[in-house]
Nucleic acid binder design. Structure first.
Length: 460
DNA sequence: TTTTGAGTTGTTCGA
DNA sequence: GTCGAACAACTCAAA
């Protein structure tokens, strides 16, 4: 009897170092399948959706060169996958597993419907979620010990791919791209981006915090879509310098947040520290909108939020500043910011986004201490010294002299009037010093302690 | 078994 | 201007 595999692609849109794909190629023939699930599509912003389609186009082209097609189908996976499996007479359906509760429920349902023919691999993390453990057998709730254990864990090896016959049915097809994606799609382009980062990886520590410089890896989107294998990224960058090791540490954070998502899926909606679900958030709708639209009056925050809306990306340092500003300065529930980022970001990823927002909000395990409140002006002066990033994304401040670019409200009226356009830039929506006191008081109250200062709270 | 030290990305205040 | 302390509490691993 001949065997036929369905390689069901999800967030692993590559053929290289892809255990589920490699396993599928061991069958006599295979169907490469992507299911556009309506519920996932609805939760995906236009920029990430466009990027997804670009990757699907590239994957389809690659399969065509091998005489096959990517079969794209629309509908709920729980119906589509068993139907396709029956249609093609599949003996096995291979996938790379995912960590979100949605994905886990979905795969469980599909697995039941397939009567045990679903074969799950881990292909999207350096080490499989759950595999890096403390001596007691659980996931460390402190990053450093997790990192030590992560480094000490040997890399597993998956099955080797073979040449096999690939089904040529395109299914419903891929929607036509109406505009340019964030990145050129596909595995090959992603590998070019990896090679480009490898060339500047030794400058990573020196430049990664400077939003005007191309110093971060900018591989988050490829890691999200799986156009890059994280193990290949690790291999390529290596740890031969302090900079490279610092980057590899970031890959461990990515794995840690995946581990934590499996450990505690309710962290999507609840603080890891339950007492911090009791914070009396302000959640002012007008302020939330101003933050989303980049009209807070704090140039570094607004530059970041506008970069996000217009490009689907935001520099890592600015993500922290903007997130801290929403949670601490505006006292807005981190879940509101998390949802906005997740929808807008081309690399929007539940486990990573929730993990990082809980870190900023101080509600997560081994998170930033709650009293660490970023000062948006200091951060701006420190990391955007020339104001180049601000000027790029906040055109109203193009002509604002460097001396006041980080806090334009301090500029004398004459300066503001002569810097064309700057009168259109809004005044700050909160006073940082007062907002900081209010945040500390709100956190202290939720934690059941007393405020640090007798005068803590909003001064008017 | 108990103790101890250490721990992604910061800010403010007072000496 | 510089510098150290305070701003908490908790997990984990090593001793």
């Amino acid at each position: 009897m001949s065997t036929h595999a369905v390689a069901w692609f999800r967030r692993d849109l590559r053929l290289g170092d892809n255990p589920a794909w490699s396993s599928a190629t061991r069958a006599d023939s295979l169907t490469a399948l992507f299911v556009a699930e309506p519920s996932l599509m609805a939760a995906t912003g236009p920029i990430r959706r466009r990027q997804l389609f670009a990757h699907l186009e590239a994957l389809d082209s690659r399969l065509r060169r091998r005489g096959g097609r990517l079969r794209v189908r629309y509908g709920p996976a729980s119906e589509v996958v068993p139907a396709v499996a029956a249609e093609v007479g599949a003996t096995v359906v291979t996938v790379n597993a995912d960590v979100t509760p949605y994905a886990r429920r979905r795969d469980e349902a599909v697995g039941l419907a397939l009567d045990g023919k679903l074969e799950a691999w881990w292909g999207n993390y350096v080490h499989p979620p759950g595999s890096v453990r403390t001596a007691k057998g659980s996931t460390s709730l402190v990053f450093s010990p997790f990192f030590s254990a992560w480094m000490a864990t040997p890399l597993g090896s998956g099955p080797r791919p073979r040449a096999t016959r690939i089904d040529g049915d395109p299914g419903d097809g891929i929607p036509q791209l109406l505009s340019t994606p964030f990145h050129p799609g596909g595995e090959r382009a992603a590998n070019n981006r990896l090679a480009a980062f490898a060339d500047r990886a030794d400058a990573y520590v020196r430049t990664r915090d400077l939003p005007a410089v191309n110093g971060t890896s900018e591989l988050s989107s490829d890691l999200h879509f799986g156009t890059l294998s994280p193990r290949r990224v690790l291999d390529t960058i290596g740890t031969s310098s302090a900079s490279r090791a610092a980057f590899v540490r970031q890959l461990a954070w990515r794995d840690w947040f995946a581990h934590l998502m499996v450990e505690k899926p309710e962290s999507i909606t609840h603080a890891w520290r339950p007492e911090l679900d009791a914070i009396a958030w302000e959640n002012d709708p007008a302020e939330i909108t101003a933050w989303m639209e980049g009209r807070t009056g704090y140039p570094i925050v607004d530059a970041g939020m506008r970069q996000l809306r217009s490009t689907g990306f935001m520099h890592n340092r600015v993500r922290m500043i903007a997130a801290s500003f929403l949670v601490k300065d505006l006292l807005v529930d981190w879940r509101i910011g998390e949802r906005w980022f997740r929808r807008q970001l081309v690399d929007g990823d539940v486990a990573q986004n929730v993990g990082n927002w809980q870190w900023v909000a101080g509600t997560g395990p081994d998170a930033a201490p709650y009293f660490r409140v970023f000062n948006p002006v200091l951060q701006s002066k420190k990391f955007d010294q020339e104001g180049a990033y601000i000027r790029h994304y906040v055109p109203e401040l193009t002509h604002m002299p460097l001396r006041w670019i980080h806090e334009p409200w301090s500029a004398p009226l004459s300066v503001r009037e002569s810097a064309a356009g700057s009168v259109d830039y809004p005044p700050p929506i909160v006073d940082h010093a007062a907002a900081r006191r209010r945040a500390l008081a709100a956190y202290a109250k939720a934690r059941g302690g007393t405020p640090m200062h007798a005068d803590a709270g909003m001064t008017t």
